[in-house]
Design a protein around this nucleic acid. Structure first.
Length: 306
DNA sequence: GGTAGACCTGGACGC
DNA sequence: GCGTCCAGGTCTACC
């Protein structure tokens, strides 16, 4: 089964994929031999775990199911859920034309409008993106990838009726969806620490999963574009394990662009470009992008440094 | 409001 | 092979 989803605003799937490293985090798989990506998800409406293939078409994407579930077609609710998830993942709801107009004339951002850049690949749920963001804190990118892969393969449900032809191209293993909140909520933090080697992040992840699973924390409300940036930021910062960097990263994913995920790379880049390589802090990073309000984070993220 | 130290892991390095 | 050091954000205690 397949569906074509389109948007009115400038769009390029390869720009979404290349915007950051999320494509390297399971359940995303980037096939080496064709454009687009594969993603394994559990459909909440039925509990089925399927793998879908997302490929570029003009002004949008084509979404195709790639498992043997093709033989047992998705029902209406499942189809709707899959299409909504795919549209959210690639940001079909976003319109960056106001930013392009704002950035017109800045040579270091000219590549954005030309390449329809600005969207960042995201998971179907805010919960998944938040767990992944916590896994990016205080570690290297290779550490993030390792922790995420182990988390997904250990606690994520395997694709039902998986077609061996569509197994993980890296090792042929069955693909897994991201672990449900209820699954991680039931894991002892010490076990998570031992199996996934997430270290001190274990209690943060379990507490987050428990809050989502019990309904104490409704992260999906953060997708509401009517919420102000400050409202969303305050909400995120109230979660244990989420600090300024993690909140800013999540804000970018949620379509709020005024905060910069200040990490060591940010202070290094800004220090080299505007402070003769001197050691600087978050204050100087924000000062460097002051003229880009309310898009400071977006301008920073796509700034061409050389 | 600002700062120091602890939290974990993997990788680099020296022996 | 083993031990030590370091990088990477957030939290807590303290001033």
């Amino acid at each position: 089964m397949s569906w074509t989803l389109k948007t009115e605003s400038p769009f390029a799937l390869d720009a979404v994929i290349d915007a950051h490293g999320w494509i390297q985090l399971h359940p995303f798989i980037q096939p080496p031999d064709r454009p687009g990506f594969d993603y394994t998800l559990r459909l909440a409406s039925s509990g089925r775990v399927i793998t879908c293939r997302v490929a570029p078409v003009e002004q949008g994407i084509e979404v195709t199911t790639t498992t043997k579930l093709n033989a047992a077609k998705l029902n209406a609710a499942e189809s709707k859920e899959l299409q909504q998830a795919a549209a959210w993942m690639v940001g079909l709801d976003l319109d960056l034309r106001p930013f392009y107009a704002h950035a017109r004339g800045e040579p270091r951002l000219a590549h954005m409008e030309a390449g329809a850049k600005g969207r960042l690949l995201r998971a179907p749920t805010v919960y998944e993106d938040l767990v992944k963001t916590i896994l990016t804190t205080n570690t290297t990118w290779s550490g993030t990838r390792r922790m995420n892969e182990t988390l997904v393969n250990t606690y994520g449900p395997a694709a039902t009726d998986a077609d061996p032809a569509h197994a993980d191209p890296a090792d042929g293993a069955a693909r897994h969806a991201f672990p449900e909140p209820a699954r991680l909520a039931a894991v002892d933090p010490d076990e998570l620490r031992a199996t996934v080697k997430v270290g001190y992040r274990a209690p943060y992840i379990v507490a987050l999963a428990q809050a989502v699973a019990t309904g104490t924390l409704d992260l999906e409300t953060l997708k509401d574009p009517a919420l102000s940036t400050e409202e969303v930021r305050k909400f995120l910062l109230s979660i244990k394990g989420v600090g300024d960097y993690a909140a800013a990263n999540m804000l970018l994913l949620l379509g709020h662009y005024d905060f910069v995920p200040v990490d060591t790379a940010a202070v290094k880049s800004v220090g080299q470009m505007w402070h003769n390589g001197e050691r600087i802090g978050a204050k100087e990073v924000y000062a460097a992008f002051e003229n880009w309000r309310p898009y400071r984070g977006l301008a920073y993220w796509f700034w061409q440094w050389d």
